[in-house]
Amino acid sequence: MSVIIQGSQLRTLLLGNGPVSSASGAFAADTRTIFTVAGGEVMVTALWGVVTTAITVANTVALHANPTTGTTGVIATATDIGTTDTAAGSVLGFRPQTDSAPDLALDGAILSGIVVSTGDIEQVTTGTNPDGAVTWYCTWVPLTTGATLVAG
């Protein structure tokens, strides 16, 4: 039997460029750039994280879109993912909310359809001595000719 289309080609047709990955590094109470957008707007077609170091201390993690010009927007609201330990290898998706941005969730879905302008997608971590680490993954398509998204 012949294969007409490869898996990577199908992924590109459905989700666009990527996946691009960006390791958060060891958590600290700070704001870190995980992806950078240049040259205009891109649409994030899928966004998810994989825990690479267990998260065992109460802390919150949020994702923000911080454009070079304009107002910072919340992609995912600050969510405590450490009080109930989150094991290495866990996939972080997003749980939709009816009145706000989605929460991070172990039982969530991949977040998609987000338009991000030139600037950064940031991980914002709060708490006292937060621990753990996440590698974030993103697929995207340019909405402006020449726009790009790269790991932060």
Rank of each mutant, 00 (worst) to 15 (best):
G82T: 06
T60W: 01
G73V: 12
T77H: 03
L63F: 03
A65E: 02
A65R: 00
A101E: 04
G70S: 12
V50Q: 12
N59D: 02
H64G: 01
M43V: 14
T36K: 08
P96S: 15
V42W: 03
V37R: 02
V74H: 03
S90F: 10
T69F: 14
L63K: 00
T69G: 12
G93Y: 10
V57D: 01
T68L: 15
H64K: 08
S90D: 15
M43Y: 10
N66I: 08
V91L: 15
H64E: 06
T36D: 07
T83K: 04
T98Q: 12
W48C: 08
A78G: 05
V51G: 03
R32T: 05
T33Y: 02
G70C: 10
V50W: 06
L92A: 08
R95I: 13
G49N: 08
T53S: 14
T71P: 02
M43A: 13
A65I: 01
D99S: 15
A54Y: 04
I81R: 00
G49S: 06
V37P: 00
D103L: 08
T45W: 09
G93H: 09
P96E: 15
T84D: 14
A58N: 02
I34A: 01
T79N: 01
I81G: 01
V44L: 15
T69H: 09
I34F: 01
T56I: 05
E41N: 13
A54G: 10
D80H: 02
T71D: 10
T56V: 05
A46D: 13
F35C: 03
S90Y: 07
P102R: 08
G93L: 13
V37H: 01
V91N: 13
N66W: 03
V91M: 14
G40E: 07
V50R: 15
T53Y: 02
S100T: 11
G89W: 08
P67F: 05
T79W: 00
